[in-house]
Nucleic acid binder design. Structure first.
Length: 267
DNA sequence: CGGCATGTTTCGCC
DNA sequence: AGGCGAAACATGCC
């Protein structure tokens, strides 16, 4: 589930952590840097940010001057976030429906604690363990954030790229935050063939795709995230006729990922 | 039991 | 050198 929309939902859910001090915690050393807890216990959460699919906790120490520490939560395919015992997204579509404590990878306790002091302030739970925790990760190469994409961003990023449009859009150096479901969804809405070489888009088509992101992402955010679109996981499985034109949907592998699209109106 | 899954990184081949 | 595709990672679920 974790694409840019889920990261944004979790960013909002984690805002209450701002101003709290980290007093204790635990990290699975298979997915976190050595000595992470020693680095961050005693620090205060100064801000919670998001870059693409990555959630960042900006930490401050002592007087509150910024010491540069930023803890990054990378959710992989099956990571979920629980803040003060509440999970804004409680069920992962392609993962487990359970919340087993053995899958906890990163846990923080804070002062003050949350409303229910008996639960951890922050908990990342990830059965498949494809996610990880970073500290001061270099994210400067990330492309423009999915909520801020303009036609000119696309022109710059897609020029001379002969790879399939879908492959380019999944590249976090092109746009940060789009994942497999969102790319299929946005291409369907924009009416663009995912197999097209990225550099063959016209200026009008780039503008159309940027406009589709601006229009559709806020709607899907309100509806609950990347699984709330017209090509929801149920539709990806059953492959009913395209709801726009009634023609058969197609399932292909593009960019080594399952791709659902409508050959009739996506060109 | 076999195959599949919302992601990212690494390897090897042009 | 750099672009690109495929494999690898880890594990629950249908």
């Amino acid at each position: 589930m974790p694409e840019g929309l889920e990261a944004e939902i979790w960013r909002r859910a984690a805002q209450p952590l701002v101003g709290r001090t980290i007093v204790d915690g635990w990290a699975d050393d298979r997915v976190a840097p050595d000595g992470l807890l020693d680095e961050i216990v005693g620090a205060t959460v100064g801000a919670v940010r998001r870059i693409g699919k990555v959630l960042l906790l900006d930490l401050t120490v002592g007087s509150g001057s910024d010491d540069g520490r930023a803890v990054g939560l990378h959710f992989g395919m099956t990571g979920r976030l629980v803040v003060d015992g509440r999970a804004p997204i409680d069920r992962l579509v392609y993962a487990s429906g359970r919340d087993d404590p053995v899958w906890d990878r990163f846990v923080l306790r804070t002062d003050p604690a949350g409303a229910d002091g008996s639960t951890a302030a922050l908990r990342m739970n990830d059965p498949r363990r494809l996610g990880h925790i970073s500290i001061d990760a270099d994210l400067t190469g990330r492309g423009v954030d999915l909520f801020d994409v303009t036609a000119s961003d696309l022109a710059t990023a897609l020029v001379r790229r002969r790879i399939a449009l879908k492959t380019a859009l999944l590249d976090q150096h092109v746009i940060a935050g789009l994942g497999n479901l969102l790319v299929d969804e946005m291409l369907w809405h924009a009416g663009l063939d995912p197999r097209r070489p990225a550099n063959t888009l016209s200026a009008e088509e780039r503008a159309r795709f940027a406009a589709t992101l601006r229009r559709r992402l806020p709607i899907m955010l309100r509806r609950g995230g990347s699984t709330s679109g017209d090509l929801s996981p149920a539709i990806r499985g059953e492959l009913p006729p395209c709801s726009r034109d009634g023609e058969p949907l197609r399932r292909d592998t593009i960019a080594a990922r399952t791709t659902v699209w409508c050959p009739h109106h996506q060109r």
